[in-house]
Amino acid sequence: MTTIAPAAPARRDVSPARHWRWTQPGLLLTGGALVLLIDPGPFDLRVITLVVAYAVAATGFNVLVGFAGIVSIGNSVFLAAGGYAWALLATSYGPLVALLAGVVLAAVIAALAGVLLLRLRAYYFAVATLALGTLGTVVVRNWTAVTNGDAGITNVGYIKVFGLSGVPSIFVAAVVLLALVSFLQEALRTSPVGQAMIIGRYDPPAAEGIGVSVAYTRVVAFVLSAVTAALGGALIAQLAGGAFPDQFATTSAISLLVIPIIAGRGWRWAPLVGAAIVIALPEYLRFLAEYRLVVYGAAVVLVALFLPGGVHQVVRAVAERLGRSRG
């Protein structure tokens, strides 16, 4: 008698469940308020703000890599677009114009690059974006008339909300932005465009067959990743008190890439959890002194090789275990 192997379990990188869309933004805003109430020291608040800023930047990247399955190593360009737009425009034209200018600039670059490069297959696209990021760094370093070269632009001001000032104000702005982009991420996932991205990732020919334009959804995902990267870049520039080439070099593009993957691609909490690991962990490993980046790099390798689902995989396994024991 022939035995038939059981069907492979469905892959659940992107959970099909529909959450109530306001849960996550609500939790984020509450958490932000709690942090302000507890009032951590200036160093901790700065680290937490940087984590939230990177989480904002990585939300679009989570869509790119988690929904559409595209890897880019050049998103530092979009961070730089947001950061430098803020640095150049915020003090003279106000925060809204500065944020929007960065977003529009990043979206235009992403749309052009996406149309030209997104027909490339995985590795080719990754290397093309690496080249794009390298070019971006060269431009930022050498276009001194606009970017002031290696010295960077200082005295860029910051966004003032709810009568706060200093780092707490940036923190609140970052949390509100994170709540907003998290809401949009969840809205996108349950929308036709988001579904098209996910289908186009797993089976491009089948997606084309049911009328999804895979090329179009890939460009949309890339533009979205650029938009949130620009928002994050603006927050990072405010927090650092200026825009400098080193902030937006290839290292930051790698951080952006590691964030969603180490936390679990496509998980809605991935940007925040990943940013906490990628940004905060090295800060609190300072007792290891110069070896902290070694530990960080080794952790990334091990997660990549042996835990491809990232933190989400662990969370799901624990939740399943708990659910089973409860009966």
């Binding site: 890897v71 995985a122 590795y123 890439l257 980046l293 960080y296 790099g297 990334v300 390798v301 491809p308």
Partner: peptide
Amino acid sequence: RMDVDVVIIGTLGVATTMTTLAGI
């Protein structure tokens, strides 16, 4: 089979580790 994105960050992690160790 390993996914492309996972392999990319795997070798990028190796690169970070090796660059830092060489610096030390």
